[in-house]
Write a protein that binds this DNA or RNA. Structure first.
Lengths: 127, 127
DNA sequence: CAGAATCCTAGCAGATACTG
DNA sequence: CAGTATCTGCTAGGATTCTG
């Protein structure tokens, strides 16, 4: 026996989850998605309203970000045929559920912010 | 009254949290950090062991990723002065706590994976 | 084995200008 | 107001080579 030992395989807790996690992170890991999701929070917002709230985001990036979120069913886009035009964005239930998870992330960040900062300065000092 | 209304400010739930969240995402939002954290899971791993488990990561990126994680106090690096050299990496308590949050993220991803996929095809079909 | 050093490229994202 | 179109720089990250 003692076969070639193909590739050490892990505990299995993350093996299948790898693609899944990478998927979420590719969704919310970009520069603006979570910010926009946060600003949408619990109310409907208009395009330029979001733009101001998410400053300094550019029009181009807000547009692209919103389209991505809409594509994944995280936000809805409703066009009111008025003059001037008005477009409302809001979180879907799925988007809201994501916001919950993001808040958990923020909680962790809050609890560990200073610790991380300290570790960094220590690490850099050790040079 | 009715002042210039500087910039619409949000519900406050995310306002202060924005930098915090961006901070975490810049840490785990890169291509390899969470994968490495997952592989470290509950046991100590050696460099090339991690390399195989995290394939197809390159040496350069594994090295850089580990250094970043060590800098933030998420993993420890212990060098055994043997021949050939042996270096062990393991999660710190802080790293483990982050893994918990990441697992929550994975849970959300798991629950919403098919839904998102469906939304995407629907969105693309609507063209 | 565990890296460091170097080179190189795709694509993310900013700035700017234009449109219905 | 709510976007699109273009042009461009920057950098994350891959491939490869070298070392203690």
């Amino acid at each position: 026996m003692a076969e070639p030992l193909p590739i050490s395989d892990d505990d299995g807790l993350c093996e299948e989850g790898r693609d899944l996690i990478r998927g979420v992170l590719e969704r919310i890991g970009d520069k603006w998605s979570v910010i926009v999701i946060c600003q949408l929070g619990d109310t409907t917002r208009r395009f330029n309203e979001l733009r101001r709230m998410s400053a300094p985001i550019t029009q181009r990036m807000l547009s692209a970000t919103l389209r991505g979120l809409e594509r994944d069913g995280l936000v809805t886009r409703t066009v009111h045929d008025t003059k001037p035009p008005r477009v409302d964005y809001a979180l879907t239930p799925r988007g809201t559920s994501l916001l919950e998870v993001v808040r958990a992330l923020a909680g962790w960040a809050e609890r560990n912010a200073t610790g991380i900062l300290d570790s960094r300065t220590a690490f850099d000092a050790a040079g």
